[in-house]
Amino acid sequence: MPLEERYSLKKHNTFGVEACARYFAPIRQVEELEELLIADMWKSMPLLVLGEGSNILFTRDVDGLVLKNEIKGIAVIRETADEVWLKVGGGENWHRFVMFCVGNHYAGVENLALIPGSVGAAPVQNIGAYGVEVKEVVDEVVAWHLETHELLHFSNADCAFGYRDSIFKQTYRGKLMIVWVVFRLSKHPHFHTDYAALREELHRMGVKDLSLRIICDAVIRIRTRKLPDPAKIGNAGSFFKNPQILVAQYGELKTRFPDLPSFPVDAHTVKIPAAWLIEQCGWKGYREGDAGVHSHQALVLVNYGKATGQQILQLSERIRQSVYERFGIMLEREVNVW
């Protein structure tokens, strides 16, 4: 397999920031991992697994080996009258996979259309949008352990999914490459339209009869309108998680900020839109040099051209501090920082 040295990562991160990998290797099959990593030289170097670079901010070079996940393939491995199981390579583009499912009338991921990134990154982040999380359709995750050089199989329960969280971000952070994901999808759709923005979009479209294609199209319309295209403006989508706070704390904040929106999580917890908090602090549309906050979505930090990762990170820290000073809520980054 080709092994590049002093390799530019600018085109491999959607922020489009300059960074360099000491070594870079595209991985197209599991056997290449075993063959490459057996060398002693990698034992003393950092290893970074990279998908499509849509959830990472490089603030420095990678003085080690970047493993680019390019393992592809979509295969039906099991099927019943009601369900289908698909084994999908971790290097597959997520949106193309969603469109494959919609085109074949496999239900479960249509609300997750146009989320940037790879299939292998989806369970790591437990991606979610418009009332659906990927944990609802993941049946199994197969990953290569970078240190023990063995394939590990994780059931859905093993993945310890949480809000934008999983065992892959915690116990196994930086230790695995997800090579395949098995999805369990339905042949009989149950449409998820509880999310207000999605209902409103369907109403604007004049939809009378729902279908997977219509749900998918509505989601694409919303995301295209609200979020910047990384091919035009460097960004990694939502930079921060929506914070979850106790009902008691929410009650106290509501007395000071009557317009504070929330979504119930359970009997004790509510979710607050991070974008609202950031906008209230005056950051929406803010720009400093080429680092800024998107004018249409305060949750998205952007690179207008030549911003460095450090500049974007410093801006994010100022935003976090201002939100904390005003609301007593410390925002948590959704984007990984290297």
Score class of each variant (00 low, 15 high):
Leu301Lys: 07
Val98Phe: 03
Gln297Ala: 04
Gln29Val: 09
Asn55Thr: 06
Glu150His: 10
Lys68Ile: 03
Val323Arg: 12
Ala39Met: 11
Arg6Gly: 07
Glu18Met: 08
Arg333Tyr: 12
Ile233Leu: 08
Val323Gln: 09
Ser211Ala: 01
Ser166Glu: 02
Ser295Asn: 12
Val30Asn: 07
Trp180Asp: 03
Pro261Lys: 09
Phe161Tyr: 13
Arg318Glu: 12
Phe58Asp: 14
Asn303His: 06
Val134Asp: 13
Glu92Thr: 03
Gly91Val: 00
Ala218Trp: 11
Gln310Ser: 14
Asp82Ser: 14
Trp94Phe: 13
Arg60Pro: 08
Val293Met: 11
Tyr130Lys: 13
Asp290Pro: 01
Glu332Arg: 12
Gly64Ser: 14
Gly282Pro: 05
Phe240His: 02
Thr80Pro: 01
Met330Cys: 05
Gly328Ala: 00
Lys306Trp: 08
Arg22Val: 01
Tyr23Phe: 15
Tyr195Met: 00
Val335His: 10
Ala143Gly: 09
Gly103Thr: 03
Asp266Leu: 06
Ala231Phe: 09
Gly289Thr: 05
Gly108Thr: 00
Ile115Ser: 10
Asp290His: 07
Gly174Phe: 02
Phe15Lys: 09
Thr255Gln: 15
Ile222Ser: 13
Glu288Arg: 07
Phe15Tyr: 15
Ala307Asp: 02
Ile214Pro: 06
Ile312Asn: 09
Gly108Leu: 00
Leu36Cys: 06
His296Ser: 10
Arg96His: 14
Leu146Ile: 12
Leu112Thr: 12
Thr308Gln: 05
His145Val: 12
Val302Asp: 04
Arg213Thr: 07
Gly305Trp: 09
Asn93Asp: 08
Arg164Cys: 03
Phe168Gly: 08
Leu210Ser: 05
Glu140Cys: 11
Asp61Trp: 13
Gly234Cys: 11
Asn235Lys: 02
Pro116Leu: 05
Tyr7Pro: 09
Ala197Met: 11
Trp94Asn: 02
Pro264Val: 15
Gly128Lys: 11
Leu151Ala: 02
